[in-house]
Simulated scan of single mutants.
Amino acid sequence: MKTFLFSLLLSVAAFAIEPLVDTTWLQHHIGDKKLRIVEVSTPKSYTSGHIKDALHTTIDKWRVNHGTFITIRSAQEIQKEIRRLGIDASTEVVLYADIQTPKDFLKASYIFWALNYHGITNVAFLDGGKQAWIEEGAALESTIPAIAASSYKVKIQPALIADRTYVEEHIGKLPMLDARPSDKYLGIAPTATVARDGHIKGAMSYSWNYSVESDYTLKESKKLETLFKEGYKLDKESEVIVYCTGGLETSFNYFVLSGVLGYKHVRLYDASMKEWGNRRDTPMVQYTYEVFKK
């Protein structure tokens, strides 16, 4: 029995991909049968040159516009895209972005969350994206790989998402992190797509870009660990809600907390301020940095 359990643990350890991989790791694993590399970019960027064996997706395949706000597409639509990419529960997925703008980077982290939300847990982010790959002198190619579609059935993880009602019911009961720049959080600077300035009552400010260097590589994880534990007093065993303007910025805070640092109960408020701040009946605060206290 002990031998069996030890072997099982080894197989699980070998199966689980780290949430952040670098270019060296990826170069060594291209060609692995269970690996799916996915570029998140425009079609033009992908066809002009991508990492060997990389498939392509765009953020529009994952999100739907409701007018004033945007959210994840239906489970059926997401399942169709996951299957098209040949992904199933046993697949190791590496996402990377062609980072021409910060938003390009955040589209990839949103898909990281979207895959988790639909039951795909073996997902990694390429540190520094396509630019890091090019900087290393690694080759790009234009050949589009042929892969077989999967038959994966999505398994929704409801604990990974929050809607407006859930957020409102938990104000003052759970810590919340606003991933927007501090001037947006404070309501000093307006957001064109949001009618009201400020932040959700009780939320703390942590702009997503605090976690990355100028080249979009992740800052030292030990420093981030200390920051959230000592600075924000977040408990890895307790729930935290993350939000932003419209779902993209906060997805990187989700990636850092849930993926890299191992926080077990991170909920993403997908519609975020584009929903909350365009209503008149939702509690908001301006001009004040808040700290969560139970």
Rank of each mutant, 00 (worst) to 15 (best):
H56F: 11
T101W: 03
P158A: 13
F125Y: 11
V64C: 04
K52L: 12
V291I: 05
F228N: 07
G202P: 04
K293R: 03
G49M: 09
V93P: 11
I120D: 12
F4A: 14
G277S: 12
D215E: 10
L115N: 05
Q286I: 14
G86L: 07
P43K: 07
R180L: 01
S90M: 11
E213W: 06
L55G: 08
Y46R: 03
V240S: 06
P102G: 08
G259A: 01
E290R: 01
P190L: 02
E225F: 00
P102E: 13
K103L: 12
I87D: 08
L85M: 12
I144Q: 15
T245I: 00
G247D: 03
L95R: 07
L261E: 03
A139Y: 05
A97R: 06
T23E: 07
K61L: 08
G259V: 00
H118R: 08
I161T: 13
Y166H: 12
K130R: 14
A146W: 07
D270A: 06
G86A: 10
A146L: 14
W62C: 01
A146K: 14
A159C: 02
R84D: 14
W113H: 05
L174C: 05
S11Y: 05
L20Y: 07
F6P: 00
V242R: 04
K2V: 11
N278D: 13
